[in-house]
């Protein structure tokens, strides 16, 4: 019982971080119908940026986020303008898979050259601290990561629902044709949306770097996780990404703590399959 509750706590806290990572992924898909295979690499790049700021200047990874988010936002917009916007053909969605995968490989290569292949981790002074609450251990880093992810997601949702830009984004997600007819500048929304996705990756990267050791190749694990989450939740839905992240994270933590850690990585694929059999559009997705 104790192990189960401890597993639940871990699952919920980790789920928040997954949700933040996946929100960028699902946003980009919602706006552009582009499956961004570079999202994992962007998260890893975000982790390296905050690692470097921490090692060189002693800046706490949480405080580094405003800086790395701006840099990554610019990078995201740049990537969109350079490689995604030129894809005007009808098979843009399919081509974008190749193009974003190329971007992922490029980022991986650059990271390998700049930081080598050794795994890095961000070891803050509070990295090993934990609180004991009613006999359960809650690690400071994990709790802070969860809180920050929740705050960042909150900001993102506010941005989408309370600003003109957000309205344009949501209009594009719902019906690109009508949005364009009503004067939404689709390419600009797409570029900014891609930038926003990269900025969430920066925030998620800082948090990811605090929780786990990472190297240039970490993005392969991340992207399969992120794709599972957004497909489970329904492509294009932020709420779906949050639900998907929680389901995946809690179920694998509970399986790890009650059955065996060997089965944990498999859990979410089984869940994914089960959900897709019943609801092919994902939990929150709209039928095509």
């Amino acid at each position: 019982m104790h192990a189960l509750v401890q597993g639940l706590i871990l699952g919920v806290l980790t789920g928040g971080v997954y949700a933040l990572m996946a929100s960028g992924q699902t946003l980009v898909f919602g706006i552009m119908k582009v499956v961004n295979l570079a999202q994992g690499a962007l998260v890893v790049l975000g982790a390296y940026l905050s690692y470097q700021l921490f090692v060189s200047y002693g800046i706490d990874p949480f405080l580094a986020i405003p800086v790395t988010a701006v840099v990554m936002f610019a990078l995201g917009v740049g990537v969109h303008l350079a490689v995604l916007r030129p894809l005007r053909r009808e098979d843009r969605a399919e081509l974008s898979l190749l193009v974003t995968f190329a971007v992922a490989l490029l980022i991986e290569g650059v990271i390998g050259v700049v930081w080598n292949t050794t795994r890095r981790s961000i070891n803050t002074s509070y990295a090993n601290d934990s609180w004991t609450v009613a006999g359960y251990q809650i690690t400071v880093v994990r709790f802070a990561a969860f809180a920050l992810s929740a705050a960042a997601l909150g900001l993102l949702i506010l941005l989408l629902h309370r600003t003109r830009f957000g309205r344009a984004v949501r209009a594009t997600v719902q019906n690109p044709e009508s949005a364009r007819l009503l004067g939404v500048r689709a390419e600009r929304v797409a570029a900014l949306g891609f930038g926003l996705g990269a900025a969430t990756a920066a925030a998620a990267g800082s948090v990811y770097g605090l929780l786990y050791p990472f190297n240039a190749g970490s993005h392969y694990d991340l992207i399969s996780l992120l794709l599972s989450i957004v497909v489970l939740g329904g492509l294009g839905s932020i709420g779906g990404a949050i639900a998907g992240a929680m389901i995946i994270s809690v179920s694998s933590a509970v399986v790890a703590s009650t059955i065996s850690p060997s089965w944990a990585p498999m859990t979410f694929f089984v869940l994914l399959l089960a959900v897709l059999l019943v609801r092919p559009q994902g939990l929150f997705g709209r039928p095509a």
Partner: peptide, 16 residues
């Protein structure tokens, strides 16, 4: 407990 190479989180194993 034998754990797979992908294990990143040791808190569940170590709790036990």
């Amino acid at each position: 407990q034998v754990y797979p190479a992908e294990t990143q989180d040791f808190s569940t194993i170590m709790t036990k």
